[in-house]
Amino acid sequence: MSGISQDDVAHLAHLARIDIPSDQLGHYAKQLDAILHAVEQISEVAADDVPAMSHPVPMTNVFREDIPGVSLAPGLAVASAPAVEDDRFRVPRILDEE
């Protein structure tokens, strides 16, 4: 299963939007490979008929009533933003629309 290459790291870094300098890719690849090798032992466990557990507490149907709450006071939403214009978050140009 394992065997993580520099290209893999570059691809994953792009998916995760982290600009890893190319001279560090090898370093990360080596470390990740070692970690993956260690965690891979879980594949030894025969667990075909075992249900996956996503939550530690077995609860369901937890809902909130549709009752308005309190929004942030005017201006507070953008107060900590690196760049703001007209109460909106200013961001560099976007290449393509989702």
Binding site: M1, I42, V45, V50, P51, A52, M53
Partner: peptide
């Protein structure tokens, strides 16, 4: 499936 899915199953076994 091999990683996250399997890890969640191991979690059940630990519980």
């Amino acid at each position: 499936d091999a990683f996250y899915g399997q890890a969640q199953k191991v979690r059940t076994l630990i519980k």
